[in-house]
Amino acid sequence: MNSAKKITTLLATFFLSLITFAQDKKTEMADMMKENGRIYVVVAVVLTILIGLILYMVRLDKKISRLEKEN
């Protein structure tokens, strides 16, 4: 490895550490799940429950429809 490459690697690691250093102040990520007091998390949880319940209802409905056809 020549010295020019060594220096660029060194500089690259230096800048990388700078980036992480900058993040320490305020970890700003591109996730909307953490905005607005994380209300989106609640929305996701409740929607999951709702979808689960509705899938269950749909399954029951289909089962009863099948029974009705058999009779």
């Binding site: 607005n36 209300i39 989106y40 609640v42 929305v43 409740v46 929607l47 709702l50």
Partner: peptide, 8 residues
């Protein structure tokens, strides 16, 4: 709609 608009 209720859940999404209801919370947001």
């Amino acid at each position: 709609y209720t859940v999404v608009a209801g919370f947001l």
